[in-house]
Design a binder for these strands. Sequence first.
RNA 1: GCCGAGGUGGCGGAAUGGCAGACGCGCUGGUCUCAAACACCAGUGGGGAAACCCGUGCGAGUUCGACUCUCGCCCUCGGCACCA
Length: 810
Amino acid sequence: MESDFIPYNPSIIEPKWQKKWEQSRIYEIDFKDKKKEKFFSLTMFPYPSGDLHIGHWYAFTPADAYSRYMRMRGFNVLHTQGFDAFGLPAENAAISRNINPMKWTFENIDNMRSQFLLMGNSYDWNRELVTCEPKYYKWNQFFFLKMLEKGIAYRKNGAVWWDPVDQTTLANEQVVDGKSERSGAEVIRKMMPQWYLKITDYAEELLNMDDLGWPEKIKHMQKNWIGKSEGTTVEFTIEKSNETISTFTTRVDTIFGVTFLVLAPEHPLVDLVTTEEFRPKIEKYVKNAAKSSEIERTSTEREKTGEFTGQYVKNPMNGDKVPIFVGDYVLNTYGTGAVMGVPAHDQRDFEFARKYKLNIKFVISKDNDPKEVLNKAYIGKGTLVNSDQFDGLENRVAMDRITEFMERKKVGVKTTTYHLRDWLISRQRYWGTPIPVLYDKEDNIHPVPLGELPVVLPEAKEFKPTGQSPLTLDDSFLWYEHPELGKLRRETDTMDTFVDSSWYHLRFASDPDGINPFSDKEIREWLPVHQYTGGAEHAVMHLLYARFFNKVLRDLGFINFDEPYQNLFNQGVLLKEHQKISKRANPLAPDPLVKEYGADAVRLYLMFLGPWDQGGDWSDDAFNGITRWLNRIWELCVRDSSKLKKSVDDDPNLERLINYTTKKIHRDLDKFKFNTSISALMELSNEMNKYWDNNIGEKQWKKCIKILIVLLSPMAPHISEELWEINGYRFSVHQESFPGWEESLIKSETKTIIVQINGKMRAQFSIEGDTSEEKIISEALNLKKVKENIGTQEVKRSIYVQDKLINFVL
RNA sequence: GCCGAGGUGGCGGAAUGGCAGACGCGCUGGUCUCAAACACCAGUGGGGAAACCCGUGCGAGUUCGACUCUCGCCCUCGGCACCA
């Protein structure tokens, strides 16, 4: 049998349309368009590691489908892509394979760009940005100098986290469980002068996330990380000395219960307070504490230890003599590095007091009985006892009263502390933005003049991590001839690459002129980002830094909005057979799949396998289901409808289904529910197939096919473009409006009424649109099934839910 | 320990307090084929011959009616964790 049926062949149609889209420039933003509302749809850009893996597809193709949908909804959509191109892998490749990092990076970018084209995403590539290009990182330097001017960037000597594998310092956020977030190596403490950005100045503002359309989980993580804590700083005077020790407490109401004080081993006063008699023991203890890792020291399982210094302080409230200990469970990095010990009302202090046989003084009582015997700390509410003039006060009230009292006596002050530390941005590595400052012989800081930016990263020959930036080896970079100051030394550390991604969205939204970091006019129109998507792993790194950067740029007068990303959606993690996908152990490369089944199949399957935010499990078997469906869709849409009858009325049920499906897809795509959108399209196509054999008219068929193709197009852009053409419509389906729906057509003339007896479904029947309740009840009671089930029992109550259900209660 | 998300067929997953299991995979049967694969059609939660009963982690509760709401518990995953 001869047939003119053209089979679905994605390997031909996909490149065909990719080329056509590029030539016709349909995804380029129309800046002249003033009518359409602007919509900035951004996904977190990738690191150019070499290949786009399936995880990238999982992140990028649903975001593209959403962007296409919004474009078809009539928005002027900015959807861009670029490369987060600075960072260690390039440098490590240079070390291990002797390749120039620049060359390595740009080769990867070229490869990944061509892989991006295979996805069929609707990016405006004119806006591509690559962060390792001088024209981009120049502005990192520019913002840095502006921050330096305002005191937001500063250099400080202090204890820093050091990654012994990558041989560089890290920011607090990049240390997870005492390990480097990147290398996995256990970090150590070092004393070094480093560059910081004063993110702590914005701690309070960063806590306010009420107006952000972000997942609660991420907001929570950020709030947790910022870690606001309100309390009182209390000064304890050292006996026979004028020196005081500051302690921070959130429970100043327990001040009369203080029976000891603990200093962190690194506390600067340890040396001063230690008496000669106890010095050998204390020195040994401090030395040991320095040796044990942060993981050991912060383990909750570990028993608290300490060592008496031989010295005492005076409780500022009652003059009690309080022994001073050194204990490594006290962290020098939080609060003041010293705590007051109240064993009766803090479990850690309780254990410590038990171990060292210290007094336990009870000052908060649940029931006003001061004689209560304790076998663990009482940390609940109560009234004060043993607390002089504050006795009888409710403890919450006492906190304020005692703090006020202390402030009058100048022995204490209300204090807010944060867990958040300033952002350490200097790195002792090569492949990053050079920090644009100069030092004279006395180590005074001189900013590089703005006019001399960018400070270009020179080509380097040696990259071995030595603990010093490889730039120190380059004399021509290192030395700077200043007209007045003479020979100056350049800063050789480079910036944390999270600086690059802290403002890249502004650059994407701009047609840069080279004179400015971004275009004010366009920033006003496109920002803040309306929809941002990406992984949750950036919750307290990138996402926090970018919010901070935004507020700084606002305060420097560059922008006028408070938050960079108005709405955020986190996709979940894609697994394969319940295991993490990795290049070696459990590979899943998209390119062969694209070659064999087409990009549309891969896109659709990734969107179909489950709700996007929950992640999912790739299954080769289930993937077959999508390719099968695509073939069915193809076959359905290329049928010759001229064979159909010309003069048949539209079928109202099909009309209803098409309106219902359209509505459902709107609702689902608005919530990123791609999986149920695709299900709805499958139902529609299955039903349409049945209608084909059932006397459908040509006019209605063509209309349904047209809508089906348009509804499918954001998710499967290539096949829908081809089917659009085959059905005789003009290029491009992606420039069509997304169809609306008619609510009145969704409502059916006849309704199916479910009949329940005692809440259990027993029967169902159909009624016409506006049948009265009485009639429905009598009709239901007449059903054979219903009669059987009721039997001789009495119907006590009938509950009728309009057009849906009737429940008889016996 | 604290905070968050979740627990539904053999599997991935659907269900504004109203038919539990949409859609897909897999499986079973059929059509096509010399045969197989593909494709297509039908069936598919468990028990039962059937009527019907049971069934959304467990236990209570609210309700005419609960996967959905409330309380208590168990488990899984993610985050935080000596933060004074």
